[in-house]
Amino acid sequence: MMNCSVEELKKKAKSIRLNIVKMVGPGKAGHFGGSCSLAEIVSVLYFRKMRHYPEDPKWEDRDRLILSKGHGAIVQYAALAMCGYFPMDELWNLKKLGSMLQGHPDMKKTPGIEANTGSLGQGLSISCGIAAGAKLDGKDYKVYCIVGDGETAEGQIWEAAMAASFYKLDNLVGILDCNRIQATGPIAERFDINPVKEKWLAFGWHVIEIDGHDVEQIISALDQADKVTGKPTMIIAHTVKGKGIPFAENTAAFHNGIMTREQYETACLALMD
């Protein structure tokens, strides 16, 4: 278990982004956009909030993080490696044949990955099931589930939303990564998911709205979620797609994009201390 300070967490988020850039490298496609939007959130979860022991990834009382938006796998891989779930060198084998790091999270291959996600809309339901299992077992661990804002077009998200409030899963904390852009462009120009807050409230969730890049706000929202009883919590995190990589910010081009060699160097320079 780690208890990094706010300053340390900011540095961790920056390192996570640098590792994302390095593990994908130039000339290869990677989901930079929706991974970089999560760097602070994932950093706070792994390096401060969650109870977990990287040396014992199956410890039964651990807090769980499920990345329902599985295409953001590289942000989780960077954090897991930095925590010590596997050697940093594994990051350089990303998506290579036989690698433990698949294009989308695979619980059978990667220590620290809790479920197989990537087909959108399913991770929140899986998280509900884990939270319900925890309650049956009388366990007090938390289940954190990161959902993409574009992902909420999937009807199953709203099935899960109903199930979570019906079963009073107050040990479940959703984090909605509102970076406003999906694979081919702005979400609002496809299915407008707004009003987001009112939707989750209407589905019976406790809702907290934050700046998803403000480490202190993230910490405070996660702490507030601990105190909520009788209902699940959704933290609506307003984020910037591609945050921290200058040319990737606020563009659909780097939802799953390829960096040129020059862009790679620009990104590394921007993210180095």
Binding site: A115, D137, Q156, A160
Partner: peptide, 20 residues
């Protein structure tokens, strides 16, 4: 799980992840 089969199956997957 009401009339929502997709959520039911994924929810079951989650329960199985806790040893059920």
């Amino acid at each position: 799980m009401s009339i929502a089969e997709a959520n039911m199956v994924s929810f079951a997957a989650g329960l199985s992840l806790t040893g059920k």
